[in-house]
Design a protein around this nucleic acid. Structure first.
Lengths: 339, 339
DNA sequence: ACCGAAAATGCAATCGATTACATTTTATGA
DNA sequence: TCATAAAATGTAATCGATTGCATTTTCGGT
């Protein structure tokens, strides 16, 4: 594999000149620049980035840690990150942590060992060191820790949840159930507050039986609904993500609810698939690409030693599709027998 | 940031000894090993992998190029790759090429510049240099070029397609339509041959009107079906992937077919979502994780300078779910009027 | 044709680890 | 106890590029 020395020899100049011809052409005469270019072409030289990185102690690479590469929710976030990274001369590498702290560490080590300059984490399942702050350039997107030792970019979880429930309330629903995510997840606490506040604002009483929780998966949504419909008579259901909403919709149909006539369902995220369900899912859209772009911009600030915002909140948007409608007239509800 | 020199100073030994204490502990006395470990701990030293990589000219990192990170089909392949990579001391980085050759080049450059040792490409959208062979350690998974200048791992596309159509035929279907992928895609040619051979073997005549093509997306499947049902009366439909099958299923239902009573649908891939559609999709499962594992094993052979197989074919499997059934009795078919 | 400033180029140190080879220390056995 | 082999450690070169500083070349002006 040819090195810069070879190019220098062929071009009849020093390695310093070769380096300059590539890095700062204006510091080299027209003539030698051409000689060097020719030599590069004829030797088939490719600069060894490792050597360069060592010398400059930077890699112009950032790592994005995903908890689950199969979760489509992250796709557009990554795209947004990539866009901004590219514009600023950074490469993006993705690491799938498979929801394990151990795997996440592997990717974090990349920056400790100087193979990457910084991290954007789309998961909060990280080694404990971060919970108390660390000196690794990092920003969290979507998820966050309580107490925020790391800069965070996420959508307006409270506002989105409240908007969803407001919408159902405004259509006349009085009995609005909810399927939350894992209780310990900070972001779920915030969404739940949105749900509660909307109920209260509409003077609807909150009943514990109206709430079940899942783990954001299709199956957990399915299971949660099967529990829910036995303990609470509802005409509307708000789910903390689309995946669970889809599971709940499947369960509801199996149990004999017709959606949206007897039961309105609203999700959260706006997965690509939300559009493909039957009926199409009404949901709260998180502007994923924008979250990604913002996260990368924040990371760039950190990398450049500028002041970075601790928290960036991106607004959400209600997308009304066909899984939601006005409540059924009295008597047309799904029959409900308490056990 | 502390370097090995610092550790050496604190431990009162040379950097060589520090290096050996880490790399080959058996070449260092118990006593000094402990001193070094202490010094490492007290200085908070992390070895600079860039320097090591430069010296050893290897990075123990491989890059996986995905055409589209939003395509869930790849998730388990990546998991399989990761598993084998990890077992062999390699790190895996994912690159999203967004279906562009240009982006793919960025990731390929990582190995040219020694930041990665090899590549597994899940896309054939690569720079032309590969089509005529190159000296970059690389294996293709799922996709392939015709003529195979690079080692390839993929599932049994011919066998899978034939199995799908055999299954429909065996149930008594006589009019079996097909939605293919992009015509220029080599893998589609192979699947189509499976379709044709099954028809022929069942003495069913092939009609051009029974075939439409899409681009593997939900929408293209939807659109293809809308064209198809006007030109061909069918009782069964085989789609070259699940995504299009789901689009076609939606279209079929809109047009008034009942699935599976009047129309059986079979997909290909076994996406996670195939299980969540209503009715659940019958499909040909590709063992994605195994494809990934095999691809990584092949890459390892290449990296170790061993002989690697040019082509590895992984068997597929028919998963019968509820989108397929015996054909309707005469008279119960979906009404068909030619335009 | 010659001076001095600016432009171009070269020399050699440097980034931080690894490792061949040289040297010192320890252990073994007579 | 001492010679000698084996084990432990140190010295310094090396990986391949970048860059501060020194030196040479170029060029405008007279």
């Amino acid at each position: 594999m040819p090195t810069m020395k070879d190019v220098a020899r062929v071009a009849g100049v020093s390695t310093a000149t070769v380096s300059r011809a590539m890095m700062s052409p204006e510091r080299v005469s027209e003539k030698t620049r051409l000689k060097v270019q020719q030599a590069i072409a004829s030797t088939g030289f490719t600069p060894n980035a490792i050597a360069r990185n060592l010398r400059k102690s930077e890699s112009k690479t950032i790592v994005v840690v995903l908890p689950d590469i199969a979760n489509m929710f992250f796709a557009d976030i990554v795209r947004g990150i990539q866009l901004v990274a590219q514009q600023n001369g950074y490469k993006v590498l993705l690491g799938d942590s498979v929801h394990t702290v151990q795997q996440a560490s592997v990717y974090i080590d990349l920056v400790k060992t100087k193979q990457a300059d910084g991290i954007i984490s789309l998961t909060a399942e990280l080694p404990a060191e971060f919970k108390s702050g660390s000196n690794i350039p990092m920003v969290m997107a979507c998820e966050f820790f309580e107490g925020y030792p790391v800069p965070t970019v996420h959508s307006d979880n409270y506002g989105g949840a409240k908007r969803a429930v407001d919408y159902l309330r405004d259509m006349g629903h009085k009995r609005i159930a909810c399927i939350t995510g894992p209780k310990e997840n900070p972001l779920c606490g915030v969404r739940k507050q949105g749900y509660l506040d909307s109920l209260q604002q509409g003077k609807l009483s909150f009943e514990a039986a109206a709430v079940e929780s899942g783990d954001f998966s299709f199956h957990s949504g399915y299971a949660a609904f099967k529990r829910l419909h036995k303990q609470y008579q509802m005409t509307a259901l708000f789910c903390f993500n689309d995946m669970m909403a889809m599971g709940a919709m499947r369960a509801a149909m199996e149990v004999g609810y017709s959606v949206p006539d007897q039961l309105s369902i609203v999700g959260f995220d706006d997965l690509l698939f939300a559009e493909y369900t039957t009926p199409q899912l009404t949901t709260i859209r998180q502007p994923q690409k924008q979250i990604g772009e913002t996260a990368m911009k924040v990371l760039l600030k950190i990398l450049n030693g500028e002041q970075a915002p601790q928290e960036s909140v991106i607004p959400t948007q209600l997308l009304v599709r066909s899984s939601s409608a006005v409540p059924p007239v009295a008597g047309a509800e799904h029959s409900f027998e308490e056990r």
